[in-house]
Design a protein around this nucleic acid. Structure first.
Length: 873
RNA sequence: GAGAUAUUAGCUCAGUUGGUUUAGAGCGCUUGCUUGACAGGCAAGAGGUCACAGGUUCAAAUCCUGUAUAUCUCACCA
């Protein structure tokens, strides 16, 4: 058979992916098997593949492929979310390029363009994910604005409204001046920035010299100031209480008020109050019934109420106001100052606190059961340190601002009546009937109903995802939801634990009375090798598609996973993908070796091969048990490393090297069969991690005989003989010693050697294996030590290799001394322990026993070494 | 400001309820190899007072206290 010496993944990957798709192996329908379900964390429909997706989806694919091979009915539901803010921004941008402004078109027209955009550009990421080999049930592809999901969102809104959880009110919210919408508290990222603290002078009304100086980071907001506040007990300001001061530049007279909120030690101890533009000032404004002057337009420019700098952007205004203050001699000084500023998670724009009417959802009642199921491990977190984070948020959960001033999304099903009242209903018709019922005297017509313009937060649909992808909200008893829900495991990043994970649990408990998933596996964040977050602006993220081209998909999957312990951030390094690629090549060449053998049915299996077959069987099962254990704990990188070493070290370096026939000689049928079987089952164990090469090798091994590896049965752990492994390990230690001697003495592998050992052998050894691997002509027991030998010692067994007359006595002595020194140190430590009365009395007998054995062994070995020393003299 | 988690070899990480021949892995590094599957390989080797300082214990990488550093979460200090 002609197989190239290098594995070339590119041709193979596409072939198998389309083959699996043709065979519908990814598709799942409810049946009598146990389900294993995952719902994908829906990527943003505008998104493109980044390293985080690679990590997250590789893990999901590993779990789902393994479950499939273990006989579960595996179902992985893919999909995307509609990403209100991001998508609307894309569409607005596209329209702008066409010379169309959003203001100039109707909502319907805009939605038309938006859907067009979505159909054309949305979901690129899904195609990219296919390249990663992920085995989602593409027939179940969902989108958060699909009809079923949209209807569910509406129904949930109506339900929560009727339960009294949803309300509308005027609040200070986080305004994104770029996206022109409110965002929730969770969507604000606070970052430390280098800024300035400006000290300003507010003249006291009716006085020529008196003034109060205040410190602020936002001098431009003084245009909206309606008070100055000091601490009531601050002696510096006692005489100003009850008086009024003049706001600089606009010359507005505002009161000096006193409140304990003020920190006397910060700045000057006096605080300017801008109720319209600061959450704390807003509270004080309510408390002291202050006027609230909104000086900003929605886009962050100053409006006519500012009086000055009208039309200027808020940051421009901050700069522009300084010379004016200076000119008026009201700017005292400017200090450097580091403080935290909130940024919009979506647009990176600085958030502007803004007073506006929004829809909120009271979360307290929803949170209670969601807290309990996590704390009692009904929903298990991996790693469980995130239970703390989760508990803290859920216990202190705030009302959720769910309205967004956008068009792309689920329009809030609230209808305003001519009398300013509002009715909430799933459709306009229902709302109409409701309105007539409630206000029979008004004689309302359906055209009088004005639907709310705002849409809902995207997360308001995402939190229903595990239910709505199975249409379990509209049809709570349908076969799918009853079979697949609760799902088995959720794989996600910890940064959306509040946005998404917590809310899904709340939704699950609220509408199905059941958790949405049993386990949550939190992946780490992918960072570069310097520990920096991967980001577009830093340009430190490799292009995932290019990586797949270079190292193969299996290679990048391995590279990603090798460094990915659950929940810890991982420093991604391309060299790990290289390791993956090299591993593929290793497997490929193992296959080439086996397939290159001539098989002779007449030959019987040699003794060394027979041992190798029996040993590998035991070893395989031993490692399989380790792998199972690792999977139970979601220690996937450990599991992969175990497979890696099983294949590279145990199968290639040991098994194949032992059974390999000499050049151009045939192999017996039993050995050949065993080699094929072993490689085959190794491919099965590896398949979830590296789907492509394993399917390819499987077919090259078995043709069509055993079907496809993707749907084959995962090997199960069988009992194994541990003593074989023990003997083998010792044999390999002997092999290593002989190899070391060969290297040290520069003895070529071609040159065969003899091995002698003293008859007092304690540890069993597979002599045939040692002979084969070390090119020995014989192994022989002798009573007396042969002359002119090299020697080594393992445990308390001494080995000799007769070799020439070139023994370097001094060198030999030096080594002996080194070894003796080590042993003496060791013995000293052990004996110190044993001579400690308290240790012998208190430690468990087993532990003391071990120490005694250590002592004995060390003494014995030492005396042997001393003997050797004497012999050298 | 409060809390959580971490700190083990050059790098990335294991190390289970304290005790298993004076700490393990992968990569990297050093040395030697055209070894008839693989140089994307083979063989051998070097490399760590387990962040620091105390304490508990017969026994500490492991438990406790403090310090330092890092990351994350929360918090209204202008």
């Amino acid at each position: 058979m002609e197989i190239s010496s290098r594995y070339n993944p590119s041709q193979i990957e596409e072939k198998w992916y389309s083959y699996w798709m043709e065979k519908s192996y990814f598709h799942s329908e409810p049946d009598e098997r146990k389900p294993f379900t995952i719902v994908i964390p829906p990527p943003n429909v505008t998104g493109v593949l980044h390293m985080g997706h690679i990590l997250n989806n590789t893990i999901q694919d590993i779990l789902i492929r393994r479950a499939r091979m273990q006989g579960y009915n595996a179902c992985w539901v893919p999909g995307t979310d509609h990403a209100s803010i991001a998508t609307e921004a894309k569409v607005v941008h596209m329209l702008k390029e066409k010379g169309i402004s959003k203001k100039d078109i109707s909502r319907e027209e805009f939605m038309h363009y938006a859907w067009q955009w979505k159909e054309k550009h949305g979901g690129i990421i899904l195609q990219q994910l296919k390249r990663l080999g992920i085995s989602c049930d593409w027939d179940r592809l969902s989108f958060t604005m699909d009809e079923a999901l949209s209807e569910s969102v509406t129904a949930v809104f109506v339900d929560l409204y009727r339960k009294g959880y949803i309300y509308r009110g005027i609040r200070m919210v986080n305004w994104d001046p770029k996206a022109l919408t409110a965002v929730s508290d969770e969507e604000v990222i606070y970052k430390e920035v280098q800024s300035h603290l400006y000290y300003l002078r507010y003249r006291v009304e009716g006085s020529e010299q008196d003034y109060i100086s205040i410190a602020t980071t936002r001098p431009e907001t003084l245009l909206g100031d309606t008070a100055v506040c000091v601490h009531p007990d601050d002696p510096r300001y006692q005489h100003f209480l009850g008086r009024r001061v003049i706001v600089p530049l606009v010359n507005r007279s505002v009161p000096v008020i006193a409140d304990t909120y003020v920190d006397r030690d910060f700045g000057t101890g006096a605080l300017k109050i801008t109720p319209a533009h600061d959450i704390n000032d807003y509270q004080l404004g309510i408390k002291y019934k202050l006027e609230s002057i909104n000086i900003f337009n929605d886009d962050g420019t100053l409006n006519e109420f500012a009086g000055l700098l009208v039309g200027m952007d808020r940051f421009e205004a901050r700069k522009a106001i300084l010379p004016l203050l200076e000119e008026a001699q009201l700017l005292i000084k400017v200090e450097n100052y580091v403080h935290k500023v909130g940024y919009s998670e979506r647009t990176q724009e600085v958030i502007e606190p803004k007073l506006s009417r929004q829809w909120f959802c009271d979360m307290a009642a929803l949170a209670r059961p969601a807290l309990e199921v996590v704390m009692n491990d009904e929903v298990r977190f991996f790693p469980d340190k995130f239970k703390n984070t989760y508990a803290h948020w859920v216990e202190n959960v705030k009302d959720w601002c769910i309205s967004r001033q956008l068009w792309w999304g689920h329009r809030i099903p609230a209808y305003y009546l001519p009398n300013q009242e509002v009715v909430v209903a799933a459709s306009q018709e229902e709302a109409y009937h409701l309105a007539r019922e409630r206000f029979p005297e008004l004689d309302i017509r359906i055209s009088d109903l004005q639907q709310e313009e705002d849409v809902l937060d995207t997360w308001f649909s995402s939190w229903l995802w595990p239910i709505t992808v199975f249409d379990g909200m509209r049809y709570p008893d349908n076969d799918d939801i009853r079979y697949y829900y609760p799902t088995s495991v959720l794989i996600t990043a910890p940064d959306i634990i509040f946005f998404w994970v917590a809310r899904m649990i709340m939704a699950g408990m609220e509408w199905r009375g059941e958790i949405p998933f049993r386990d949550v596996y939190f992946t780490g964040m992918v960072r570069d090798h310097l520990g920096r977050k991967m980001s577009k602006s830093l340009g430190n993220s490799p292009d995932p598609i290019a990586l797949m081209d270079t190292y193969g998909t299996d290679g990048i999957r391995m590279g990603m996973l090798l460094s990915a312990p659950a929940g810890n951030d991982l420093m991604f390094d391309e060299s790990l993908c290289e390791q993956g690629r090299n591993f593929n090549n290793k497997i490929w060449n193992a296959l080439r070796l086996i397939k290159g053998w001539k098989v002779d049915d007449k030959l019987s299996i040699p003794a060394h091969a027979n041992i190798a077959v029996e040993w590998f069987d035991a070893r395989f099962n031993q490692v399989l048990a380790e792998i199972d254990d690792a999977f139970q704990k979601y220690r996937l990188s450990d599991a992969l490393m175990s497979v890696y070493k099983l294949i590279w070290d145990d199968f290639c370096a040991c098994f194949l090297e032992i059974v390999k026939p000499p050049y151009q000689q045939a192999v017996d049928a039993v050995t050949y069969q065993a080699a094929c079987t072993n490689l085959g089952r190794l491919m099965q164990v590896l398949h979830p991690f590296m789907p492509f090469i394993t399917e390819e090798v499987w077919h090259l091994l078995y043709g069509e005989e055993k079907g496809d590896i993707i749907v084959s049965s995962m090997p199960q752990v069988l009992t194994f003989d541990a003593s074989i492994i023990e003997t083998f390990v010792f044999s390999m230690e002997v092999v290593e010693q002989i190899r070391r001697i060969r290297t040290e003495k520069n003895i070529a592998q071609k040159h065969s050697l003899e091995l002698y050992l003293s008859p007092r052998q304690q540890q069993a050894m597979f002599e045939e294996v040692v002979i084969k691997l070390c090119n020995l002509s014989k192994i022989q027991r002798v009573d007396t030590k042969p002359t002119a030998t090299l020697s080594f010692m393992l445990h308390t067994q001494e080995f000799f290799i007769p070799f020439g007359e070139t023994l370097d006595v001094e060198e030999e002595k030096r080594k002996l001394q080194e070894e003796m020194q080590y042993l003496e140190g060791f013995l000293d430590k052990v004996e110190k322990k044993l001579s400690n009365q308290a240790f012998v009395e208190n430690a468990p007998e087993k532990v003391v026993e071990i120490e005694r054995k250590k002592q004995n062994d060390a003494r014995q070995k030492l005396s042997l070494l001393q003997q050797k020393w004497q012999d050298l003299d």
